[in-house]
Design a protein around this nucleic acid. Structure first.
Length: 102
DNA sequence: AGTAAGGCGGGCA
DNA sequence: GTGCCCGCCTTAC
């Protein structure tokens, strides 16, 4: 468990309901804007998935990205939170984007 | 303990 | 819009 992954988990935990974030923002907030992939890998094999709403983290391109339990599940969860999704893609990404750095 | 491969992405050509 | 390359963390051998 490195400092980076720890920060990623902390930030992910702070994501409020009804909001989402991109892997890039998460990686940037963690200290490595280029570690976007590392964020996904960390979340995928995270130690406490119950406390980590990784389903609220999506790609920068607007796609929901992948999910350990299945992309469909991720989409369903996001839709339940109040985020409209079209064909596994976020409709109003910026409208639901959550910023860590205020 | 060290090395090698994989993974839920991002950016650029 | 598609394709390719890069960089970083985790895990398995």
């Amino acid at each position: 468990m490195t400092n980076f992954s720890k920060k990623v988990l902390e930030l992910t935990k702070q994501i409020p309901k009804g909001k989402i974030t991109t892997y890039r923002q998460l990686a940037a907030a963690a200290g490595n804007p280029k570690a976007c992939r590392a964020v996904g890998g960390t979340l995928n094999k995270n130690k406490h998935p119950i406390v980590i709403p990784c389903h609220r983290v999506i790609k920068s391109t607007g796609e929901v990205g992948g999910y350990s339990g299945g992309t469909v599940k991720k989409v369903a969860l996001l839709k339940k939170e109040g985020i409209p999704i079209k064909n596994s893609k976020i409709v109003n990404l910026k409208h639901y984007l959550h910023e860590f750095k205020c």
